[in-house]
């Protein structure tokens, strides 16, 4: 994956999402609570995507001007800015977790989190607020696939050649 520009204080660091995660780079758009919820939902969506940095990837892309955002949502019929779409869905997971199990999403037992997640793949879970839950998971699934598989490392993990004409080493 190409490096992204992560802003830390008054410095801009060029890092891959995985590096940004490893270095615990502060989020620009997501609150720590949102980020924690997103982390857990993303890992249920596509295992390994959180280690690949999907939470930092989404946060960094949402911090950019709308016409520079490269998340797949840009051509799925949702108008920019996209941060409300993500934030509202994360609130939806929190509200549903509280209503169904009386706890924050990240604090749920694995079976509880999986039950809520499975409901969200089929329709809005109990107490859900925000965009349609299955659609949000379709979008998040695409983001997770971008980070985990849409890279040279991802191709290697799938045992297929990447065969770049121009390697994606530029600042997205």
């Amino acid at each position: 994956m190409g490096s992204l520009a992560f802003v830390v204080g008054n410095k801009t660091l060029m890092l891959t999402p995985a590096q940004a995660r490893a270095q615990n780079i502060p989020f620009q758009v997501l609150s720590d609570k949102h980020a924690l919820t997103l982390h857990h939902v993303a890992e249920l969506t596509l295992p390994g995507s959180t280690e690949a940095g999907v939470v930092h990837f989404i946060d960094q892309q949402l911090s950019r001007p709308a016409d520079e955002c490269l998340l797949m949502i840009r051509y799925l019929g949702i108008e920019a800015p996209y941060r409300e779409f993500y934030l509202n869905a994360l609130v939806g997971f929190e509200v549903s977790a509280q209503q169904m199990f009386g706890a924050n999403f990240h604090a749920l037992e694995r079976t509880q989190a999986q039950e809520l997640f499975n409901q969200a793949t089929r329709g809005d879970p109990s107490g859900w607020q925000g965009p349609p839950a299955p659609f949000f998971l379709f979008v998040l699934r695409a983001d997770a696939s971008d980070v985990l598989y849409g890279t040279q490392a991802g191709s290697e993990a799938l045992s297929i050649p990447y065969m770049a004409h121009i390697e994606p080493s530029t600042n997205w």
Binding site: L70, M72, A164, P168, W172
Partner: peptide, 8 residues
């Protein structure tokens, strides 16, 4: 750039 992400 050869990237489905960049291609957007």
């Amino acid at each position: 750039v050869s990237s489905q992400i960049w291609a957007r």
